[in-house]
Design a protein around this nucleic acid. Structure first.
Lengths: 187, 187
DNA sequence: GTCTATAAGAAGATAGAC
DNA sequence: GTCTATCTTCTTATAGAC
């Protein structure tokens, strides 16, 4: 693949990723994505034969991002509890986007889970990545119920984001974050 | 409106409500709904001029259901804490559907919040109904932070349902329910 | 009220010129 | 690689017969 081709492909993935987060997968058309970056639908189809392939690329792109994120956290925070707090800090850093558009991972899974089961299976890997990372972190804290704890932390985070998204309410999110932090301290 | 007409309208709303829960709003077409109850698309359009009107009717239908539900709980459980536990019991009773299709209220709001803001505002009233009811219940328990507590309980419930839906995992849901119940007891 | 027929547009996808 | 043109299918919606 040529250098120019790689750049185009990357631009498509980034634009599609953003649009799908904002508008949802089924509400984002080839025309939307093509328009966004100033190419035609035909050209887009040269790079991706189907919408399904675009989704595949987006999920892979996101997985790669999560992989790097978790790797960075592992390097930066040797202490397990610090890592848990870093996880929660993500909700603070992304506050505005979370309130406006919800969790990119959660909303995509909810949407695909309804009717696109195959695609949903792939997008679930994003959850797996966080679940497994949290699982290891709780294990390192010596907790026997590490699996349950990792799922519970994810559930609290998802619930907090969903509610603050429903009500477009930053205070709601901040209050939930406080509660989650207390929970982490008490674990 | 004739008796026969009312029956048809009711049947349409119930079928559309179910399909929209299972498939999502944007993925449910007029043809789907018409097929489901054995009428034609043209006939459906006689009863509802637009898809938006169908959604309106569904939201009103659901609100009515929630209104009755909460009213029943108020009558059956004079004790505030019993009422909170009755709320959580809903997650047990609806376990299979929640795991398969998620929360009807949460998933609809997530979907509409992306691009259909007007319709989303209406569907948010379902959340308002629970929020206000829980708010009153916590107030009755004499808690100063009643608003925060009601939002937190809803957030935990939504997070629990979302995670168990993502993983199609009844055990995950049951474990979360146990934690929520403990939280209620400690409030 | 319920039907058939049809319009009008959007969407995913393909073919072929450049 | 990128474009234009076209196809097909689906979806919302309307018109008019019965």
């Amino acid at each position: 693949m040529t250098r120019k081709g790689q750049i185009s492909r990357e631009r498509i993935i980034e634009a599609a990723n953003r649009l799908i987060y904002i508008k949802g997968f089924n509400q984002t058309s080839f025309a939307d994505v093509a328009n966004e970056i100033g190419i035609t639908k035909g050209n887009l189809h040269y790079h991706f034969k189907s919408k399904d392939e675009v989704l595949d690329a987006i999920v892979e792109y996101r997985l790669q991002g999560i992989r790097m994120l978790l790797s960075d956290w592992d390097n930066e925070f040797p202490d397990a509890k610090d890592r848990l707090h870093r996880f929660v800090q993500m909700l603070v850093n992304e506050e505005q986007e979370l309130i406006r558009y919800g969790c990119p991972m959660g909303s995509l899974n909810v949407e695909l889970g309804k009717t696109q089961l195959t695609q949903r299976d792939r997008s679930r890997e994003m959850f797996d990545m966080f679940t497994n990372w949290l699982d290891n972190t709780f294990k390192q804290l010596g907790n026997k119920d590490h699996r349950k704890l990792s799922q519970h932390l994810l559930a609290m985070a998802q619930g907090a984001v969903l509610m603050s998204y429903v009500y477009s309410d930053a205070d709601l999110l901040r209050n939930e974050i406080t509660l989650i932090r207390k929970w982490i301290d008490d674990v």
